[in-house]
């Protein structure tokens, strides 16, 4: 049984915002609807479906790859623009998210707003330093990292667009996920974005998710990589830091001890993949 009393389909973002304000805590935004259909709490009386908003485009702009919040994960996965972005790392990640039946419905905006700790989208987009545009009375853009730090209020704002910044030629990215069975919720995921100068790493963003906490940067590894040659010794050091510095816990999917093994393998694989590409 559902407690939902009204279902609204606003055609403008201002109208959606007004409905969200009017409904207060009993109103919930619907992107693809997958999460809301599964997890909407009983106090939700009003659903506000964002499907009619003009947020379904994928564009390559001068400032980056702009992805509308209403784009489905399948739309993005099948986009040639996404395939061309950083050697297809976004597509590589999306292929491992759920199954096609869910990807066909779930939206990029919903994937962020759901703030699932195991989210592969959040982990990779944090590593890519995604910028998120939201509407809460007015449009404003902030980093995904900031948005996730304030995720307690994310359901009170309307995500309209995600921007993946244009990478320079010497930027590389990689993603790794560990699952029990294909398309399952992961036991741990890891993403890296490195800016290289020859075989040296100038700077990097290293993110682990599903620890089982939501994706977050591991700055100890980022500091260790800055200025270092991306060779076996550096990769060993990064793996050692992942073993020592990453905060991990047990949950139903994996023990902290097992996650530690996965974290070491994850960072090692990501960095080795980038080192191989740099050498090509």
């Amino acid at each position: 049984m559902t407690s939902v009393q009204t279902y609204q389909r606003p055609s403008s973002i201002e109208e959606a915002w007004s409905l969200l304000n009017d409904g207060g805590k009993s109103a919930k935004l619907v992107g693809g609807g997958v999460d809301v259909a599964l997890f909407a709490p009983p106090e939700i009386l009003t659903l506000i479906d964002l499907a009619l908003l003009p947020t379904r485009s994928i564009e390559l702009r001068s400032d980056g790859l702009a992805i509308g919040a209403g784009v489905t994960l399948t739309d993005l996965l099948e986009s040639p623009l996404a395939a061309a972005y950083l050697d297809g790392v976004v597509v590589t990640m999306l292929r491992q998210v759920a199954a096609p039946l869910l990807r066909n419905a779930a939206t990029v905006g919903g994937a962020l707003a759901s703030t699932h700790p195991w989210s592969d989208v959040i982990t990779l987009f944090l590593a890519l330093d995604a910028q998120v545009t939201q509407y809460s009375g007015q449009l404003q853009t902030s980093s995904l990292e900031n948005l996730m730090e304030q995720r307690g209020t994310i359901d009170r704002t309307i995500i309209t667009e995600v921007l993946l910044p244009i990478p320079a030629d010497d930027v590389y990215a990689s993603f790794e996920k560990f699952v029990r069975t294909g398309f399952d919720i992961g036991m741990l995921n890891c993403a890296c974005r490195l800016t290289m100068n020859g075989d040296r790493c100038e700077s990097g963003r290293i993110v682990f998710g599903g620890t089982p906490d939501i994706g977050h940067r591991l700055e100890a590894i980022e500091r260790a990589l800055a200025g270092a040659r991306l060779d076996d010794a550096t990769i060993d050091s990064a793996a050692q830091l992942a073993r020592q510095a990453l905060a991990l816990r047990d949950d139903v999917r994996a023990s902290a001890e097992y996650r530690r093994v996965l974290a070491v393998a994850g960072i090692r694989r990501c960095l080795m993949r980038i080192a191989q590409r740099v050498g090509e």
């Binding site: 619907v30 609807g33 066909n104 419905a105």
Partner: peptide, 16 residues
């Protein structure tokens, strides 16, 4: 098939 793509109908609000 909903607008050409396969989806789980148990997770699609009919109003959508």
């Amino acid at each position: 098939l909903f607008n050409g793509r396969a989806v789980n109908s148990c997770l699609v609000f009919a109003a959508k």
